[in-house]
């Protein structure tokens, strides 16, 4: 939407909520994308750290 008049936020960003609760489920340990996920999880890397490698 168009920015309403008088809208202000710290550094132009305003937090208004949080995510609702999530469910615990199991991912299937199969496929190239899972293996990439497992690699990140085991080395505790984030996406951007992983991109740089």
């Amino acid at each position: 939407p168009v920015l309403p008049e008088g809208w202000a936020g710290e550094k132009d960003f305003k937090t208004t909520g949080r995510l609702s609760a999530a469910t615990q489920r199991s991912i299937e340990p199969v496929g190239p994308h899972f293996l990439a996920h497992a690699r990140r999880a085991r080395h505790k890397r984030t996406f951007s750290e992983d991109d740089r490698i």
């Binding site: 995510l19 609760a21 469910t23 615990q24 489920r25 199991s26 991912i27 299937e28 340990p29 497992a38």
Partner: peptide, 17 residues
């Protein structure tokens, strides 16, 4: 280690963002 539940059991979003 990669197929261990600690790796495979994670949170899943209930709603779309």
């Amino acid at each position: 280690q990669s197929t261990h539940p600690a790796v495979t059991t994670v949170k899943h979003l209930t709603n779309a963002i």
